[in-house]
Computed example of a mutant assay.
Amino acid sequence: MNLYIAGGCNEHGRNSFLITGDSYSILVDCGAIEDDSYCYPYLTKQQIQSIQFLFLTHSHKDHAGAVNWLIGNGFQGIIICSEETRQQSLIKYSQWQILSLPVQNYNRFTISDNLYVTYGKSGHCVGSLWYLLNFENKSILFSGDYSEESSIYKCDKLSGLYADFAVLDCGGGNTSFDNQDNRTAIRSFVLESIKNNKIVLLPVPKYGRGTEIIDLFQDECEELSIYLDEILACQMTKQYKSWYKKTFSIPINLLNNWNGVPAVLFASDAQLSNDCTQALANKVIGLKGDIVFTGHIYKNTYSDFLIRNNMANVLDYPVHMGYSQVVKILKKNSFRKVILYHSPEKIENNRESVVEATVRSKLSI
């Protein structure tokens, strides 16, 4: 059995991992990347057409953004994920296997006598799962984007598990960070701007980090004017009880109704990729407001342009594990070999179990 890295190691995006054995060919995630002239996973048509199952950990572009490309190149297998991931991905396809939510921590789904998967919530966004695949007497864990420290999203913690191979998110790289310090920094910056009668725009992803940052201001919701676009407002009002640790009490003002007064604005377009949010950003700049980016920004996007021209601020809100957090996971589980992905920087590691892997590496399991 082999594990082929079609994308995701030593880069931020294009996450895609192909497992081939005697009986099955399985792909975990099929993401795109915006920091490269070629944005798709490195898979041949022959590889694509042999895939029987595609497991999606969640709907973010860097994990599911190349699925339509995969289908266009001959994929005819079954896509396996949560119902929320299916809905968010907007992928038009006929063959889905929807996994029910774990009732108590881990759940198990059997495909055949030779293939079953244990899975749980990964704490990254609504719909996000980790997978422990078992077939041909081997086990391979895929953490997806994983966080035990989310203030909003439930996580079925990885603990007491064995895997021959573990593919773990290390998007935080070598950085040692304290999530609470990052939350405090963002909250303080925004409140200070509002105190100075300024507008603050926070462009965030459609799903995930945005609701966590909105939650930072629940205690001030009566004093602050907070405006959300429709995608974020839906998430705040729908109250995904199976995925959220808490309920929200923030009054919902729709961004379309904002009239230019000092307020905190949330737009679900982290890269400012569409004309409407670009126009909104320009309006905020024209009114001498502040723009705050809180996550990874791809090169040559409008967000990147604003940052390079000192027209916006960057205050990271970590939603990925750094190496120090990965070590904690390794201590709580038994993984024979480990691959770290999602970080463009080389991870400073001294553990024998961690295997060096790059895009297009082929490893024997």
Rank of each mutant, 00 (worst) to 15 (best):
N196Q: 11
H296G: 06
L18Y: 09
R209S: 05
P262V: 08
K195H: 12
G77W: 04
I199F: 07
V204W: 06
G289Q: 00
G8S: 12
S59W: 05
G295D: 13
N179C: 12
Q278H: 07
T20R: 13
G144I: 02
N68W: 03
F248D: 04
F53H: 14
A357D: 02
E148G: 00
L202H: 03
N179Y: 08
E192T: 15
N349K: 08
I91C: 08
K157T: 14
S303G: 15
F135E: 07
L141R: 00
A233S: 15
I186W: 04
N114M: 12
N197L: 06
V261N: 15
S151C: 06
E212I: 08
N349M: 05
A166D: 10
R360M: 10
S151E: 05
L191I: 06
Y302D: 03
T294W: 03
P203I: 05
V354T: 05
V284F: 07
N257E: 13
E83N: 11
S89Y: 07
G123I: 02
S128C: 02
T85R: 08
V67H: 05
I51P: 02
G171D: 00
H124N: 09
Y162A: 02
G21S: 15
Y4F: 15
S147A: 06
I285E: 05
T118K: 10
N114W: 08
K154E: 00
N256I: 08
N253Q: 13
L287Y: 08
L265S: 07
N274D: 15
Y227P: 03
Q95C: 11
Q180Y: 11
F177H: 10
Y24F: 15
G74V: 08
S225I: 11
L224C: 11
V292D: 00
Y119Q: 00
S353M: 11
L54Q: 01
L3S: 07
R308L: 12
D181T: 07
S343W: 05
H320C: 10
D145M: 06
Y42H: 14
V200Q: 01
S242F: 12
V354W: 01
W243L: 09
S188D: 11
G172I: 01
K346D: 15
F305W: 09
V204K: 00
V327D: 09
V167L: 14
Y317C: 04
S188G: 04
N300H: 13
S353W: 01
W130P: 00
K61P: 09
E136A: 10
G289I: 05
K121E: 01
L191Y: 04
N174K: 09
D145N: 05
I98W: 09
P41K: 06
N137V: 04
L43D: 04
S25T: 15
N196I: 03
V190F: 05
I226F: 01
I214D: 05
V167K: 04
I329H: 07
G160C: 02
S150I: 02
Y106F: 13
I79T: 04
